[in-house]
Computed example of a mutant assay.
Amino acid sequence: MVEIVFGFDFGIKRVGIAMGNTLTGQAQPLAVVKAIDNAARFTQIGALIDEWRPSKLVVGEPFHPDGAEHEMTLRCRRFANQLHGRFGLPVQLVDERYSSAVIQAKRGEVIDDKAASIILQQYFDDHANLC
Rank of each mutant, 00 (worst) to 15 (best):
R77F: 03
E51L: 12
Q122N: 10
W52V: 07
G88R: 09
A68N: 12
Q44M: 03
S99Q: 12
A47C: 13
I36V: 09
G7F: 00
V91G: 05
L83V: 09
E109V: 15
Q121K: 06
R75E: 10
A27R: 08
E51V: 09
L48Q: 02
E109H: 14
A101K: 15
H64W: 11
N38I: 15
G85Q: 14
Q44H: 15
N21W: 08
F8V: 03
I119F: 08
Q121R: 06
N21C: 13
K13T: 06
I12R: 06
I45Y: 04
T24V: 14
G25W: 12
G46V: 08
E61L: 13
Q28Y: 07
D37G: 13
A115W: 09
Q82A: 14
K106C: 06
V91S: 03
V33Q: 03
P29M: 04
D125R: 01
R78G: 00
I49C: 04
I119H: 07
T73A: 05
P65Q: 02
V59K: 07
Q121W: 11
N38H: 08
L23G: 05
F63G: 02
P65K: 02
Q121I: 00
D112M: 07
A40P: 01
I36Y: 04
Q82T: 11
M1P: 01
M1F: 10
L89K: 09
Q92T: 13
A18R: 07
Q26T: 13
F8N: 00
F10I: 09
C131V: 15
H127I: 10
Q122S: 02
E96Y: 05
Q122W: 05
D95R: 05
G46S: 11
M72S: 11
N81V: 14
L93M: 11
A31H: 09
F8T: 03
A80K: 07
E109M: 11
L130H: 10
K56N: 05
Q104K: 15
G108E: 09
G25Q: 11
V59C: 07
H127V: 10
V33L: 09
A115Y: 08
G108I: 05
T24A: 08
D50N: 06
V15K: 04
M19Q: 07
I12K: 10
R78L: 08
G85W: 15
A40K: 14
G11E: 01
C131S: 11
I103N: 04
A47K: 11
Q122R: 15
L83G: 02
A18D: 05
G67V: 06
E61G: 13
V15D: 03
V91L: 09
P54R: 12
A116Q: 11
C131P: 00
A128Q: 04
